[in-house]
Amino acid sequence: MKAMLTSFGSGIIFALGLGISGMTRPVKVIGFLDFFGAWDASLAFVMLGAIAVYFVAYRWSREMPSPLLAPDFALPKRFDLDAKLILGAAIFGAGWGLGGFCPGPALTSLASGALPVFIFVVAMGLGMYLHTGITELGVTNSGFAVSPANSTPDA
């Protein structure tokens, strides 16, 4: 139960951080990605601030036998670079530049009630289902017995 409250509270703080840093505004995101235009470096500072805090937290977590409110750490266990990772990141980046939204800011901005955000989020959900559909189709066709796609946590 406490873990659920942590999740809820963390979600609130995450959204406030996105809003305060300006990342709920596509003009800031597109401004960062516009290296050949009126470049806005703010997003790099958001990452810097977040990474500075999380880097320390991660070091602490390495010293802990388990999280404070859960039995185990659920961390990604893969270290290999594969085509899916790079192609997926490339596709995500293209969509990010095109719309100016990534998942966190888009979901947070649903609270604005703005129709364009709602449309983006629905399309994003469909994109996720599309991936699931294609993956399951591939598994069926190739006949391989693979473990469920979600067996290891994502980054």
Partner: peptide, 23 residues
């Protein structure tokens, strides 16, 4: 604002890690 907001995002992600063990 970017650094401060970013630190809040880092704090949120840290709480998820240290308390719940999640990314």
């Amino acid at each position: 604002a970017a650094l401060f907001g970013g630190a809040l995002i880092g704090l949120s992600a840290s709480a998820m890690l240290l308390l719940d063990g999640k990314i």
